[in-house]
Design a protein around this nucleic acid. Sequence first.
DNA 1: CACCAGGCCCTAT
DNA 2: ATAGGGCATGGT
Length: 207
Amino acid sequence: MAGNYEKIRALYSRLRKMYGHPEGQWALWCRRPKTDEMREQVIIEAILTQRANWRNVEQAVRNLSSAGLLGLKGIATADRQMLEKLILPSGFYRQKSCRLKEIARFFLNECGGLHQAMKIPTHLLREQLLSLDGIGPETADDILLYALDRPVFVVDEYTRRISVAEQISSVTSYNTLQELFSSAIRKDFRTYQDFHALIVINGKAGR
DNA sequence: CACCAGGCCCTAT
DNA sequence: ATAGGGCATGGT
């Protein structure tokens, strides 16, 4: 529906006018260009933020940083018990320690490092990420969009809410909304990053 | 005290 | 296909 595309584009420019360029907690995720260290941190944060308050994620990240383990290599070599203790504040720490280990193993061993992973075609990489235990569509797309600069639109709870509120779509399944938003705006990772960040910033502001 | 936060998986209909 | 429960912490 072309009308929906219009609503989505209008929403984007409205959010841009309201909030400008995404800042604050999105200073890392929306920064361009990113260093390797930043990409690795985003990957780690994508796991830690699953159903967690961002404040708690930040504490877990500080703990990892203080321990010198805020990177794929650090996660991979860290003792499991130690890892659990460090990420404790982000919640679900037993699951998440496994998921972190798994994703670090994937990028380092299966891909042969982050630079090799960057060469893998988006759709293939997405399938590989989704095959990992504990990596669902949103986490996979967070990593693709914000860590690896792939033009993949992220759908989350805030995207669903605003889609209903703005009458963009009453169907809020992941694929439906992703298709809708992806098609409505220019396929550019910078635009996708900023738009999704703005949706979340707006969602948090309204409560 | 109850509820929520930038999910995901497993199980039972 | 879809609904419900479990995972866990810290803030309001």
